[in-house]
Design a protein around this nucleic acid. Structure first.
Lengths: 233, 233
DNA sequence: CGGGATCCCAGCAGATACTG
DNA sequence: CAGTATCTGCTGGGATCCCG
């Protein structure tokens, strides 16, 4: 008897003719969806991703990017940034993961209500994605958010919101704050107007646009946290 | 130097204060979401799950169920079935995963357009979930679907559809078919009326309800399959 | 310095056997 | 029927090295 040992085994698969199983075959491995999340706001360089995904190791990031590229979800693009070099960008197929990522994040949001746990990393970009989830629709507005060195541009249309990490201007209203201020805006049920009065948020541009902006977001949903049975068994 | 080796390491975590990362901490491991998918239609016994998740091994299923139970997403319930014994049932928190599962399945659906691959398993329950995804809303109807030995009850309301694996009756209309017929209904763009004329689907109950049922589903979307770059490098 | 490749090892997944 | 126990091999984590 003679067996041919195939090098480079085919990837592990659930072998089920089901959309969920097939999706998990492609993006179900560790770190994969987090890489896609990082690319939702803008194309990124390898080093950007390494810095924004604390805990991932360089070999694993390289592997995940190669897999995503092979699946046609991510493509390498030359010097899309002023600094040159190559960036990784979502293809249409990769960007189509956004609804699934948003629903997973909405579900996971109930674990965030207690605030960050010890050792948890925070990132301004993640906050912007959570803003996107909470957009109620119904307004038309170009807005910018400046958080420290990072800038985001938000294009509101009545049916959706496109967020890019890109120059905040031109925009009808610009909100400037720092990371802590953004989190206060997002995660506190406090009035953004109060945060502005306290100087945590600084607003420039049209006052009317600022008021429009505030109307567009649902208040923090505050779902009841999951009850973990207290049996210490 | 002396290190205390902590037995029972804490579970691997991304340590990110982000809904997506937290969701993946909880349900991102292999098989977990597929277990939840099986429980979406009805509570299941351990042996049911083992049979419906071909490829999972008994130790891993036990581990996943224990984790889901500890997280409060699944609970063990005594003799919910006529045959007695204990079944696993989703809690409210576990059932709240449905939108995320549906969006992932919708995305993965584009990999299904070529039909099952060699070796892929098929399951009638997965087909019912894909029906649920394609419900357009707008009707009120109680329907039943009988596929071989398995029965499903569908409660249509204008805003949603609840599918349970449960006795098909009582219902205003009952569709009886076999597994192949259900898949033809779901995955072909052929007219269900034609399938009925050919005897693949047999309909009992009110004719008007049958016509209502047909109006309620979007035709197969047929998204373009992802283009996998042909470079064999 | 950006963008990886290589090595090693711990832990998780997979297969099988066994038990209440 | 409903799991546990045991073994093994693969995948992911960590450190280091390479190369333009």
């Amino acid at each position: 008897m003679c067996y041919l040992i195939v090098k480079s085994m085919a990837r592990r698969t659930y072998a089920q003719h089901c959309g969920l199983a097939r999706a998990l075959d492609v993006v179900g491995e560790r770190w994969t969806l987090l890489v896609v999340r990082e690319l939702l706001l803008a194309p990124r360089r390898y080093g950007d991703l390494l810095a924004e995904l604390p805990g991932i190791t360089t070999n694993l990031l390289a592997k995940r990017l190669a897999e995503l590229e092979k699946e046609g979800l991510v493509e390498k693009v030359e010097r899309a940034r002023p600094t040159g070099g190559v960036v990784y960008r979502l293809t249409e197929g990769g960007a189509a993961l956004e609804p699934a990522i948003m629903e997973l994040a909405r579900w996971g949001g109930r674990y965030l209500v207690g605030g960050p746990r010890r050792g948890d990393r925070l990132d301004v970009g993640w906050g912007l994605l959570s803003m996107k989830r909470r957009y109620l629709g119904g307004i038309t507005l170009e807005a910018g958010i400046v958080v420290g060195e990072r800038e985001f541009h938000l294009s509101f249309t009545p049916t959706g919101l496109v967020v890019h990490e890109a120059p905040a201007r031109p925009a009808e209203v610009i909100v400037t704050t720092d990371a802590k201020g953004l989190l206060a805006w997002l995660f506190s049920n406090g009035d953004p107007k109060a945060l502005r009065r306290e100087g945590v948020l600084s607003v420039s541009g049209e006052e009317e646009s600022w008021r429009t902006l505030l109307r567009a977001f649902a208040p923090r949903p505050l779902p009841p946290p999951l009850l973990v049975p207290a049996r210490p068994t």
